[in-house]
Simulated scan of single mutants.
Amino acid sequence: MPAPDAPLTGAPSPGPARPSRLDPAIAAKLRRTPDGLVAAVVRAHDTGEVLMVAWMDDEALHRTLTTGRATYWSRSRGEYWVKGATSGNHQYVRSVALDCDGDALLVSVEQVGAACHTGQRTCFFTDLPVSSPEETP
Results as ranks from 00 to 15, higher is better:
2 P>Y: 04
3 A>P: 10
4 P>Q: 03
5 D>I: 13
5 D>L: 15
7 P>W: 07
10 G>M: 00
11 A>N: 15
12 P>T: 03
13 S>F: 09
17 A>E: 01
19 P>V: 09
22 L>T: 00
22 L>P: 04
24 P>G: 07
26 I>E: 00
27 A>M: 08
29 K>P: 05
32 R>C: 10
35 D>N: 14
40 A>L: 05
44 A>Y: 10
44 A>E: 15
48 G>P: 10
49 E>C: 08
50 V>D: 07
51 L>C: 02
52 M>R: 01
53 V>F: 06
56 M>E: 13
56 M>Q: 15
58 D>G: 02
58 D>Y: 00
60 A>G: 06
61 L>D: 05
61 L>T: 00
64 T>N: 00
66 T>M: 03
67 T>A: 05
69 R>I: 01
71 T>F: 02
73 W>C: 07
77 R>I: 11
79 E>A: 15
79 E>D: 14
82 V>S: 06
88 G>E: 05
90 H>M: 07
91 Q>G: 00
95 S>D: 14
97 A>L: 09
101 D>Y: 15
107 V>D: 00
115 A>H: 01
116 C>I: 04
117 H>Y: 08
117 H>W: 09
120 Q>Y: 12
121 R>D: 14
123 C>L: 12
125 F>G: 11
125 F>E: 11
126 T>Y: 14
130 V>T: 14
130 V>N: 11
130 V>R: 13
132 S>M: 13
